[in-house]
Nucleic acid binder design. Structure first.
Length: 558
RNA sequence: GGUCCCGUGGUCAAGCGGUUAAGACAUCGCCCUUUCACGGCGGUAACAUGGGUUCGAAUCCCGUCGGGAUCACCA
């Protein structure tokens, strides 16, 4: 068959040639070793935390090699497209500190760089030119079959084929159509897709090097995959080959779910006589489900799959990034310990150090990273971060703190400023209120039905202790005086006034100075856990302290 | 079902033929201490399984089991 003639017949309205495409986008003149990487999200609603993970790897590669990190919007599936999703993705990337150097820049039309357009729906001519070239060299052909309609139909058919115990092969009927048959179909106005004419042998393998997985053997591709849908937009495979060729991507970082279609991508490159980029197939971030099984983070079931979740929860960006970086290169935390003040971009990251196990997202570990990140914040930084967060995610809390900067800074300085070891109690801004509510509410908590005073001690003893202590407390006392008053009160209630005595013979005491402190703490803060009590009481002021003690006595006396 | 990927403590993980099998989170205990916390010290806890190869296997090979991915005119 005269393939050249076939190509012209099929694409008579399209003049752009494959050769011209290549000429239009010459090599980037970059220093040796500089990598060109890309993040290519599809605009389907929100940015997956896995994309942040992948984009971070991209950014790290570009940063360490002095290369370029660009963003391309993969919007060829108009059915799934969600409005503004591209902008959302760009904004999210930016808030995570992963702003691309080149490409899509957010507000629809705007782009940066000379290898565009960076939106696939506007690159149709290139895909067609490549497909046409493939037809003209006999490596692609038109397919007139009707496509399956929707995911349900596909699943149904797959189930049928599985039951028949046979592999689903796209040995296409249209592969051997004659020129005349094709011409006839065209005359009848039939629409067609373009398929790759695969030349692979399913019994043959070839060697392949993956930057993460290392050296592998891959089975040759035998699938006549679709290169151009009947509306002449490309599915992922062709779009990937065309765009990453024309934009001169040097290393493709993508999730492991792509690994099984790799052979078909490589066959397209080969058919075109092109060198493929390097590939790094990353593990997929998973979670433990109810049955104790690992599974990919899913958009439907798992709120944490959405990158916005972490912002809503009030995790500092750095906390998320450091946690992710530790997943990427697990020796990160050791490095961080030795380099507490450096930027994580200084960490000697290596693609080859990425493990190939799918990690389970561990919130405890994230929280630990986050506590450490926040422990490096100043009191002012904590205040402004909490305020900014609350303004959009917790309006009520925002109203409580917005005009109380001095108060808050003092509060966040307790156990944080001028101390040897910084208190690490906050892991995200969203929990600040629940940790410190007693500082912002005028303690009507004790009148709430579900509030129960619990110092772990006898009620009457507690009441008597508080009655006595109330008469002694003065907010003008120095810390030593304040403490001595509590200590001096101890013998009267048979509390040990130091822990050593108490430990020697706990049975001979009703409690210890620790219990005495605990009574006061719970009365003031309603909980057994708070920063340095002296400063807390001081901040609250004489009247509030007396009032809270009164309320507690009242409550306990009922 | 076919193909591919992956199995080291509860979780993340070092390990690359000879290790007392690191470290971190979590957990437990002790110390410090006016509580909680922070910090320090220590403990519990792992090579999925069965066969090989080898003087020697977590490490190499094969089988089994378990988990995951993929098999669209979706990305």
């Amino acid at each position: 068959m005269d393939y050249k003639k076939l190509a012209d017949l099929l694409f008579k309205d399209y003049d752009l040639t494959y050769e011209n495409c290549l000429k239009t986008f010459p090599d980037r003149s970059l220093p040796k070793g500089a990598e060109v990487v890309r993040i290519a999200p599809s605009p389907t609603g929100y940015l997956h935390i896995g994309s942040v993970y992948g984009a971070f790897i991209d950014k790290l590669i570009a940063y360490h090699s002095g290369g370029i990190f660009y963003m391309r919007l993969e919007d060829t599936d108009s059915k799934r497209e969600v409005e503004n999703a591209g902008d959302i993705a760009y904004d999210m990337l930016s808030t995570f500190g992963l702003k691309p150097d080149e490409g899509y820049t957010g507000d629809g039309k705007a782009q940066k760089g000379s290898y565009g357009d960076y939106v696939q729906s506007r690159r149709k001519k290139y895909y067609i030119a490549f497909a046409k070239h493939l037809v003209s060299i006999g490596r692609a052909y038109p397919c007139f079959c009707k496509s399956l309609d929707g995911i349900d139909e596909i699943k149904k058919r797959r189930q049928e084929e599985i039951e028949k115990t046979c592999d689903i092969e796209e040995k296409d009927k249209c592969r051997n159509l004659t020129f005349e048959q094709i011409e006839e179909n065209l005359k009848r106005g039939m629409s067609f897709a373009i398929r790759l004419k695969s030349m692979g042998d399913e019994n043959k393998v070839f060697k392949f090097y993956d930057e993460i997985k290392g050296e592998r053997e891959i089975r040759e591709n035998t699938k006549d995959i679709v290169l151009l849908k009947s509306d002449f937009t490309p599915p992922y495979a062709l779009a990937h080959v065309v765009d990453d060729t024309l934009m001169h991507t040097t290393i493709v970082v993508r999730g492991e779910e792509w690994y099984s279609s790799l052979a078909s991508h490589l066959e397209i490159f080969k058919a075109l006589g092109l060198n493929p980029p390097k590939y790094a197939h990353t593990p997929v971030v998973c979670k433990m489900d109810e049955n104790g099984n690992k599974r990919k983070l899913s958009k439907r079931k798992d709120p944490e799959a959405d990158a916005r979740f972490f912002i809503e929860q009030g995790y500092p960006i750095d906390s998320v990034m450091e946690y992710l970086l530790n997943l990427i290169n697990s020796d990160y935390e050791d490095w961080r310990k030795v380099n507490p003040d450096k930027s994580y971009y200084d960490f000697p990251f290596k693609v080859s150090k990425i493990g190939s196990n799918n990690p389970i997202f561990d919130f405890q570990k994230l929280n630990d990273f986050s506590k450490q990140v926040i422990s490096r914040f100043t009191a002012e930084q904590i205040f402004s971060s909490v305020k900014d967060w609350a303004e959009t995610y917790d309006k009520q809390f925002f109203d409580k703190i917005k005009d109380k900067k001095d108060f808050c800074v003092k509060l966040f300085s307790i156990d944080r400023v001028n101390v040897k070891n910084v208190r690490k109690d906050i892991s995200r801004w969203g929990e600040v209120y629940s940790l410190y509510d007693y500082m912002f509410d005028n303690l009507n908590l004790k009148t709430l039905p579900d509030y129960e005073f619990d110092s772990g001690l006898d009620k009457n003893l507690t009441i008597k202790f508080l009655q006595e202590y109330k008469t002694l407390y003065s907010s003008s006392d120095e810390k030593d005086t304040w403490f001595d008053k509590i200590r001096n009160l101890c013998p009267k209630f048979n509390f040990a006034s130091n822990m050593k005595d108490y430990k020697k013979s706990p049975d001979s005491f009703a409690g210890s100075i620790a219990d005495a402190s605990s009574i006061i703490r719970v009365a003031i803060t309603t909980r057994k856990n708070s920063p340095d009590l002296y400063y807390i009481m001081n901040l609250l002021g004489q009247d509030e302290i007396i009032s809270r003690i009164d309320k507690t006595i009242d409550l306990l006396s009922r």
